[in-house]
């Protein structure tokens, strides 16, 4: 009888080959990364070609090396870092406030139908007024500085996270709730051990989405009001026909957005190690 135990325990179908599988996966991830570089390189080549062969007037499309030089100049002589810092601070604050509020209220609404009924109609109306439509009014109240932008972006972060938290909680497996009852877990233990972990994947998806959204919105908000930040620079560069500076800002915005998304994906992967997903 005990040797049947050994056979089954020793078989370890899934756990034993886990290691080589993981190694293979990292190998493939590297491969995917290289594949992902092909298209950017192609675009760079095309860009360089259109500048060298004068397919496009350099006023409208400066050569890559001119953009690189502009980047260096902005960094060393024009406080690009400070503008970048201004933008990222707004996004960081807005993301923090918006998502913390959203997760807390989302949990409250997810756990109580009454809370959901209380906030539901109001939220569903506010949600449909875009953040940018709020900006003019908020700027009248709070001025053209950072607080107005933080508020507006926090609002845009809030809703996707709130809705996904609520939905994630509502989708908790009934069987798991029954298990918690059978194990005599208290309501708080149920929330902590069962409800929140099972809502976590859906919360993390919305956080990742909201982080990207916040970064995109700060550019718009700074373009519409204020005197600093990447969004301000980009619109100023357009006005002064400094296409090279404009493109520096675009590239920086794109790369930072990429880094934010990858960072969030890393957090997601780290926190959801227990989840086995489709890997293509």
């Amino acid at each position: 009888m005990s040797d049947t135990a050994n056979t089954i325990a020793g078989a370890g179908f899934a756990a034993a080959p886990a290691r080589p599988q993981r190694a293979r996966r990292t190998g493939r991830r590297l491969h995917v990364n290289l594949t992902g570089l092909v298209l950017p390189l192609a675009i760079l080549v095309l860009w360089e070609a259109s500048a060298s062969f004068r397919w496009v007037d350099p006023v409208f499309l400066p050569a890559p090396q001119k953009v690189a030089a502009a980047f260096w100049k902005m960094l060393t002589a024009q406080n690009l870092a400070q503008d970048f810092l201004a933008s990222i601070t707004i996004v960081g604050q807005a993301f923090l406030y918006g998502s913390v509020a959203a997760i807390l209220l989302g949990i409250a609404a997810g756990l109580s139908r009454r809370v959901e009924a209380f906030f539901g109609p109001t939220f569903d109306t506010i949600r449909h007024i875009p953040g940018i439509a709020w900006l003019p009014l908020i700027v009248l109240w709070l001025g053209i500085g950072a607080p107005a932008k933080v508020l507006v972006i926090a609002k845009s972060v809030f809703f996707p996270v709130f809705l996904n938290t609520l939905q994630g909680i509502r989708n908790v497996d009934r069987n798991h709730i029954e298990l918690a009852q059978a194990l005599t877990l208290t309501r708080w233990q149920l929330v902590r051990r069962v409800v929140l972990p099972s809502a976590l994947p859906s919360i993390l998806v919305s956080l990742r989405y909201a982080a990207g959204l916040a970064w995109a919105l700060v550019v718009v908000a700074e373009g519409l009001s204020g005197l600093e930040g990447l969004g301000f620079l980009i619109f100023r560069a357009q006005g002064l026909l400094l296409t090279d500076q404009l493109m520096v800002c675009m590239v920086v915005i794109g790369l930072v957005g990429f880094a934010i998304d990858r960072g969030m994906a890393l957090v997601q992967r780290r926190l959801l190690r227990w989840k086995q997903g489709f890997e293509g």
């Binding site: 325990a9 078989a11 370890g12 179908f13 899934a14 756990a15 886990a18 190690r273 227990w274 989840k275 086995q276």
Partner: peptide, 11 residues
């Protein structure tokens, strides 16, 4: 030996 395994890793 499977103390730290997650359920999806078990048969």
């Amino acid at each position: 030996g499977f103390e730290r395994a997650f359920p999806h890793q078990l048969s």
